[in-house]
Design a protein around this nucleic acid. Structure first.
Lengths: 103, 103
DNA sequence: TTTATTGTTTCATAATAATCGAACTCTTTG
DNA sequence: CAAAGAGTTCGATTATTATGAAACAATAAA
């Protein structure tokens, strides 16, 4: 993990809205691994993460779609589409890279 | 450490130049704690960090001054002036906050 | 096969951030 | 005290980012 990658990660988390989105996704993923999720969970990811995020934030879906893309480009999440649902997974390697920062 | 504080930290590290500056400061601080620093070290910080940074980067000192200020505002470093020298210290609490991210 | 639903992409705009030169303050040195 | 050195602040410019409306594609439902 070189500096450029960390810059991409830090940049992705440097907007309050995107950090909010990321934290929500992270917590939803946790409820899945705990088995307490209140949603259908496909392929170990959060189902309908996009819709759920739109419900939680006062932003247009267009903007939220842009934010998802930035988180994905930074390698923080992986999103796929299953039917009409967007399924979203946290990339724990990126999290680990943050935790290893300057260690 | 709430989200806002993390946003400030991530924002401060989200520019390639500022991340470079921060990593240099971090490493200079380490040479001090190892006792291998080649400079006079005042108050457990890096002496002449500003001048040294200006020597390492192709940026105006005005711009570098702004970057220092942003790192300081984010709580990542603490700078003081001793004589003509700017003395700079890494705030390890901020580093720890990053490492604790979503833990 | 229409009609919703879900999300993406394009385009434009407003807001932020990065950068630098020049003028400035404070400190040291001659 | 004059001159030089170390950083800061101000003002302006350029580059980047955040945002949303509208058109779009893909899927599901009626």
């Amino acid at each position: 993990m070189n500096n450029i990658d960390l810059v991409k990660i830090f940049k992705a988390l440097s907007s309050e809205q995107r950090l909010n989105i990321f934290i929500m996704l992270y917590e939803w993923n946790q409820t899945i691994s705990e088995g307490t999720a209140d949603c259908l969970c496909l392929e170990d990811g959060v189902e309908k993460c996009f819709t759920k995020t739109c419900d939680c934030l006062d932003l247009s879906k267009s903007t939220i779609s842009h934010h998802f893309k930035e988180l994905e480009n930074a390698g923080l999440i992986n999103c796929t589409r299953i039917g009409q649902s967007s399924v979203c997974k946290i990339n724990m390697k990126a999290i680990q890279a943050i935790r290893d920062f300057l260690k």
